[in-house]
Design a protein around this nucleic acid. Sequence first.
DNA 1: CAGTCCCGTAGGCATAC
DNA 2: ATCACGTATGCCTACGGGACTG
Length: 1161
Amino acid sequence: DKYNGELYVMGHTIDILPMHPLRKDSEEEKRVELHLHTKMSAMDGVGEIENYIKVAKSMGHKVIAITDHGVVQGFPEAQKHATELGIKVLYGAELYMVDDNLHYAFNPQDILLHDATYVCFDFETTGLSSKYDRIIEFGATRFEKGVVVDTIDFFINPGRPIPKKITDITRITDEMVKNAPGEKDVLTKIKSFIKDAVLVSHNAEFDIGFLNEALDRNGQEKITNPIIDTLALSRYLFPEARYHNLGALCRNLEITSYNDDEAHRADFDARILNEVWLAILNILVRDNMMMTHADLAKLKANDAILKHLKPRHVVVLAKNELGLKNLYKLISLSHINYLAEIPKIPRREMIKHHEGLLFGSACFNGEVFDTARTRNKEDLKKVLAFYDYIEVQPIPNYCYLVNVGSIENNKQVQRFIEDIIEAADEIGKPVVATGDAHYVNPEEKIHRDVYIMAKAVGGKPHPLNTNPYERAGEVYYENPDQHYRSTKEMLKEFCFLGEEKAREIVVTNTNKIAQTVQELFPVKSKLFAPKIPGTEEFLRSLCFKTAREWYGNPLPQHIEDRLSRELNGIINNGYSVNYYIAHKIIAKAKEDGYLVGSRGSVGSSFAATMAYITEVNPLKPHYRCPNCKNSEFVSDSKYSSGYDLPDKLCPVCGTKYIKDGQNIPFETFLGFNAEKIPDIDLNFPSDYQARAHDYTKELLGEDSVFRAGTIGTTADKTAFGYVRGYFERLGQDPNTVPRAETAYLASHLTGVKKTTGQHPGGIMVIPNDKEVYDFTPVQYPADDKESTWKTTHFDYRAIHDSLLKLDLLGHVDPLALKMMCEITNINVEDIPMNDPKVISIFSSDQSLGRKNNFLKVETGALAIPEFGTDFVRGVLRKTRPNTFAELVIISALTHGENVWANNAEDLIDQKICGLRDVIGCRDDIMTYLTDKGLEPKIAFAIMESVRKGKKVAPQLADIMRAHNVPEYYISSCNKIKYMFPKAHAVAYVMMAVRVGYFKVYYPLEFYATFFSVRSKQYEFNTMLKGEDAITTRIEELRRKTLNRSERLQPKEVGIYDTLKIAIEMVERGYKFGNIDLYKSDAVNFTVDYDRGVLIPPFTVLDGLGESAAYSVIEARKDGKFLSKEDLLSRTKLNNTNMEELESLGVLNDLGDTNQISIFEF
DNA sequence: CAGTCCCGTAGGCATAC
DNA sequence: ATCACGTATGCCTACGGGACTG
Ligand SMILES: Nc1nc2c(ncn2[C@H]2C[C@H](O)[C@@H](COP(=O)(O)OP(=O)(O)OP(=O)(O)O)O2)c(=O)[nH]1
Ligand SMILES: [Mg+2]
Ligand SMILES: [Mg+2]
Ligand SMILES: [Zn+2]
């Protein structure tokens, strides 16, 4: 397209080709992948577990491991898809292990530190490996009785070229060592210098490793001198410090003689080290003059060292249920006790929890490969001993190290791999070839490339990025190949070992490991409900007590029957504790002066009504007498809500009847036989929610309640951003990339974990006889140690079937109602549900009494919760409801995709149904189908699948047809994407009616509350100016919505929403007053009854937030503001705030400075 | 007095009921 | 190009300004 530069393909005919075949594996005997990352490896894995499993199946693989970075959040999906395809999953994770017991001393001896003789020394070498590299310089100082008595420094010819990298660091060239003696000729010299002194080195394992290796090579004994490591001591002394190199240690010890120009030469470093050691020695013996070399081992480092200890990757696989639990414990410990930006786990905890687990040595970030790179075989074997099996990976997996120059070339990588295998063979540790897969197929490599290029959460570069700081001129090397490899591919990668050896590590050993692992199912389907002695009886008697208070004693038989039946279901299925707790929290909130809103399917339970958990009464429409407890049930099908019954006096005692009953089946909540696991939902005022949550800890104990966790992943918008960033960093303008390509790439980047979070209200309850680790690991949300809640590592869906949830949600409605009740002195319970004027606002705006109608509204539903949007008001306009029952139907019809639009609306338009016979809520489906003669359980199952947006299964649709369910009904079911339970609709209509009551009868209080708690955005100068200004602005914004090329910014949408309510208020004859330094509240609109206006809070101004607003309230308690200067200095207002206040005329009475102001007095 | 850190404010995004 | 589900919590980032620090 020449106009927009996009590439277009014009299709004339379309042939549907067969699916691209999944990859095969031509080897007969299959390998097992023991190291694999899914999208749950944050900002790194791009392979979908479902696809891994499908490809594994296609390749004939029977087993596959899942080992994400530090987490097990991929387990649920893995189990789901593996079960479907009959693949066995090895459940595990790749953990970050640290050694937090520091080795300050080697070869311990009982020598008094304060008067020992020391040799501080340092080597320069050709590289990091004591085996493959050589010493090129030795420098040392000898220190006796408080004075340096000798120093020494000389070069050693390594007999090989010095790598450029080393010359860059040390400034030592081949030329300088050319005439120096060789290694063999200097050993005696070194030994005679150090004699039997205590040796001090910075990173002793490195220096001593080189020395011993050299001695060994030349047939000499290793040294036995006592050794001190100042690197470990640096961590001990400065646990918070990030860096512990010699320069950093000098800065921390305030040693100033260190300088970068002379550093990294053995003579200089040895001299500095001598100073360093003296300083440390002073600190150590200050408290304990008698401290010995051996005593150093007893020093106990602070936990803060964890943060800066280098983590080593270790793969952990669960062999059985015990192992799974131990794995969950390790995951929890690392995310809670040892969290240090990343979840670390000390080796000792690994050892403690080893039972049921297999430890594998992981990738090049594991200690095995590191040891192979830096140490000799003997050390390597010691390291290998910790592991149950040893991993080696294809050479391309290590390319990062070669690219950045840490390893010379692939040949050297191969040598390290061979060394590892040789050492492992000698001590009988099985070696396995692992692929460390990060994506499924080779062509998906670019998806990971995009993530390697992207910044992780917190702005951190990906560890494999070869130009992490985006320096111009530096290279982004090609990233390693890490797709899911076939046996054939893997054998080829290891052909350098010879056919037999390759087969052993690729096929034989991986299968052996897999065989020692039991097939596990981490997602449990059995429910473990909490038990507290006495709660069942408490609940039963509470419910019957309320019932008798309401309906008399003895209870009418059908009420007694329903309550008993419900209570049996509730108690037998383990819900009594949750009912009990919900009851207690609500009682507490009320005691604390708060309202609690009802919500959710629990309103279908009469027992819940009786326990005051919901305001919804699910019984059939009825009257009951508050005085003599007489009740009267109404069978007239005209009334489907008790609130619509005509007023009536009790025939027995003449008292005005209470009207109630919504006709809701209990089964919507729990099913016929507890087929589903509902939660209990409650709407707490937003400012009370946290307290409600805290109270569960008090009631059940800290170890029994956990906030449900959520997993935040990359979705569309973020994915597009990453793709654009990727092209930008490669120097390409992302706007020149075809949109289709960007979209294609982005679509493959979604679902990758970024962070974790907290469920909006869900509190998971752990039964007393279980531990949380029986179900899930725990963590802090977003790994934030300051969080008041620990969260479940798995999200709610994964543990839905095994644990109960209390959903203590936040909502503005109860908060708003409380505010309105307080300023009007009205009791919520006294607000009628059938006030004709109030009900009329849902079909007409007459009762609002407005002078003008700029927006041409036809109903009064604006600003009524869940009814005030353009869409819902449109439905109201079309249906003009005038009963509570109709509002309930409309509530459900206007929530969820394809419920009204493309569905009920069409049926009504085509006169196939009336408003009262379309599917008007979830429960309708079950009731209707049972009436048609379907088995209740089948009717229930269909209801559940419809409300979840799933189509009715074909067999079930056939059953429906067999029972004469019309085709339109089936297709209506199939279109619904989501549907309210009736109980929820009732609860929400109740709230809407209450809010409507205030809107009709207490407009100023209503608008004050609306603007305080609902409005997201204000444009206060427009609001203050009044009707003309508001209508002009609305018109301007509306024109923008109609204009296709222009879109309203989110902020403008907010302003638009607020102005719509503002104009309604103004048309009803009410006004906004100005901000008043002494009358305005910090955050809420208040009513000025004298002037009949609303006084805005300070926060209506953009950029003036809560903190600044409250500071004004505080400051004015200390007396009047004398001047603008005074106001500015006594509050947290900033200059922009001041300017805005000024332009609104709020500061008219104030002079610029105090002098003038005093003068004016 | 410039650099750094922390706080307040706002907006974007993802997830959930 | 969205004639439509509405309302909630929470995490991350950017930015500007004041307090702190070398
Ligand atoms: N508007 C709207 N409301 C929702 C949606 N999902 C849930 N709600 C409301 C209505 C639900 O009854 C209420 C509680 O949600 P739950 O997830 O607990 O489901 P519910 O209680 O209906 O069924 P349950 O028995 O818990 O499985 O929250 C939604 O997608 N849109
Ligand atoms: Mg629920
Ligand atoms: Mg819920
Ligand atoms: Zn009576």
